[in-house]
Amino acid sequence: MANQSINSHPVRDLVTVVLGVGLLLILAFPFIWVVLISFRPESEIFTRTFQLITTFTLDNYAMLLEGSPFPTYLRNSLVVCTVATIVAVVISMVTAYGFSRNRRFRGRQTLLIMVIATQLFPFVILITPLYATFFSLGMINNPLALVISYIAVNLPFCIYMLLGYLDTIPRDLDDAARIDGATTLQIIFRVILPVAWPGIVTVAVYAFVSAWDEFLFALTLMTSDENKTVPVGLAGFFGEYTTQWNLVMAASVVSTLPTLIIFMFLQRKLVSDLSAGAVKT
C-alpha cells in the first residue's frame, strides 16, 4: 500500500476523514442514545427520556446478566448463528463457484431463478408447514432446527452475492491450478477463497446479522427458555401492559457487541490478508 502515499494531500485527507467519521457518528447517533439510556435507573427512563445527562447506573446490566436468562439467550444465539453462517458460506461458495465457472449447463438459468424465487414467499405463512415438518422430525426445541432454517434462509443471498464476486475473479487462476493437478474443491478453497475474501466477509456478516435478528423461526421452533435466542428474549420484555425499557436497552447494547466484535476482527484479518496477498501476486 506504500505506493499510494505518493498521491496523499494532507488537507484533502483530513477533510475526508472528518467527513467520513462525522457521517458515521451521525449514523450511530440513535444507537448512542440507546447506550446512554441503558445506563439510567428504571425510574428515570420515562420521566427523563429526553435528557442527555441523568443518573448513571449499572443496575440494568447487572439485572440483565445476573437476574435474567439473557446470558443463555446470548450463548444460544452465538452458537446457532456462528454454525449457520459458516455452513451457509461454505455451501454457497461451492454453489456460486459452480454457477460462475459453468456458464451454460442445462437448467442453469432455471436454477438461478428458483433460488431468487425462494425470496418471494412471506415467512409468516411458510412458518406453519415448517413447524409441522420440524415437529414430525422431533426437532422442536432442538437448536439444529434453527441452524437449518438460517442456512436455508441465507443461502439465496449468499449464492447471488458470491456469484457476483467470483465473476470478477479471472479464470487464469483456476486454469493455472488445474494444470498443477488441483481438484475443483481444492481450487475453490485454496485458490479462489483467499482472493474472494472481501466478498466472503461481507456475505458472512450478512448471514450472521440476519440470523442474529431473526425472530419468527426462533419464536416458533424454540419455545423453552433454555433454547431461546436474543430477539425472542428481547420480545419477552415487552408486555401487553408494561415494557421493561431499561432491560430492553441494556439487552440491545449487549446483543450488538458480538456482531461488532466479530466484524472488526474479520476486517482486521481482511486488511492483513489483502496486503499479504498483494505481496504474493
Binding site: A132, F135, L219, T220, S224, D225, G236, E240
Partner: peptide, 23 residues
C-alpha cells in the same frame, strides 16, 4: 412444573400451530 414465557402477541398463533400438530 416448568414455566415457559412467550410474548403475548404471538401466543395465539403459536398455539394454533402447535396443538393441531400434537404439541
Amino acid at each position: 412444573v416448568r414455566m415457559e414465557t412467550m410474548a403475548g402477541g404471538d401466543t395465539l398463533a403459536q398455539l394454533a400451530r402447535e396443538v393441531p400438530a400434537g404439541a
